[in-house]
Computed example of a mutant assay.
Amino acid sequence: MALAAVFAVVAITACDQQNIVELEEGVSTEADVRERFGAPEAVWDGADGDQIYEYNRQPEGYQNYQITIGADGKMSALRQVLNPDNFARVEVGMPMETVRKMLGKPMKITTYELKGETHYDWRYHDGPNTSDSKIFTVVFDRDYHAVSTGSVPDPALLRGQ
């Protein structure tokens, strides 16, 4: 079972890389993006009439892509958003919706009723090797405002899965 999951992640990653290579900022259209990546997980309104398409690879993968389609219908940006630079932008007091738009759909959401907390977890690579896999967590209070963040090694790697 674990081996099948590894093959699925490798296949998704390889397909994503091929699709990314085939797209060009300022040239590729919304139709080109949808042809290669399919329907987005979510669509966010951006600045100046832009739309931001979310392509989530959680929980099995380690990426969340955001592709910006300009008002002219052309792709203006393609970013993998699960990285330490974006994590550093998460601030105490930030609303959950803002974090969600910044990082994409988390791999797991856990609510701790007695503590009045909800944890959003994202799996990511913090380096070129699979041994650099980590979990980034944002802790939200009852009103869904960020109270803390942190990263730990991916427990799946510690269990050898």
Rank of each mutant, 00 (worst) to 15 (best):
Q18N: 13
L157S: 08
D121W: 03
V33W: 01
E91M: 12
R34K: 08
V43P: 00
V27P: 00
Y112M: 04
A146S: 06
E97Y: 03
T110M: 15
P59K: 02
Y55T: 02
Y144N: 10
T29R: 01
R89D: 14
V27W: 00
V10E: 11
L114T: 14
E54V: 11
A11N: 15
A47W: 05
D32H: 04
A4L: 12
E25S: 14
V90S: 03
S151M: 10
I135S: 10
T149K: 08
S76H: 09
A5F: 14
R159T: 15
D141R: 10
L23E: 00
E91A: 14
L3E: 12
L114Y: 11
V81F: 01
D45L: 10
Y120I: 01
Q161I: 15
H119Y: 09
Y55F: 05
L3W: 05
A88H: 08
I12M: 14
Q80R: 15
Y53M: 07
R36F: 01
E24M: 00
G104F: 03
D126I: 03
A31D: 12
V92Y: 04
R34C: 01
G116P: 05
I12V: 13
Q58V: 11
N86K: 08
M96V: 09
D45P: 07
T98H: 10
Q161Y: 15
V81P: 01
A14R: 13
Q63F: 06
T68Y: 09
V92S: 11
I135H: 08
Y112K: 05
Q63C: 07
H119T: 05
F136P: 04
P153L: 07
S131G: 11
I67Q: 07
D85K: 14
I109W: 01
T13Y: 04
K74M: 03
L82P: 08
D85R: 14
A2N: 12
G160A: 10
W122F: 07
W122H: 10
A11E: 15
Q17M: 07
G49E: 02
A77W: 02
P153Q: 13
L157C: 06
T68R: 14
V43G: 02
D16R: 11
Y120M: 03
D45S: 14
A88C: 06
E30C: 06
V139D: 13
N86Y: 05
G160K: 10
D72T: 04
M1Y: 04
A8I: 15
G160R: 12
L82V: 12
G104V: 06
A77C: 05
D48V: 10
N56L: 08
P95L: 04
Y55H: 02
A146D: 03
G93E: 03
T68N: 12
A77R: 08
D154G: 13
K134S: 07
Y55Q: 01
A11W: 14
T111C: 04
T29C: 01
V139N: 13
N129Q: 05
E117M: 11
V6F: 11
D143C: 07
D141N: 13
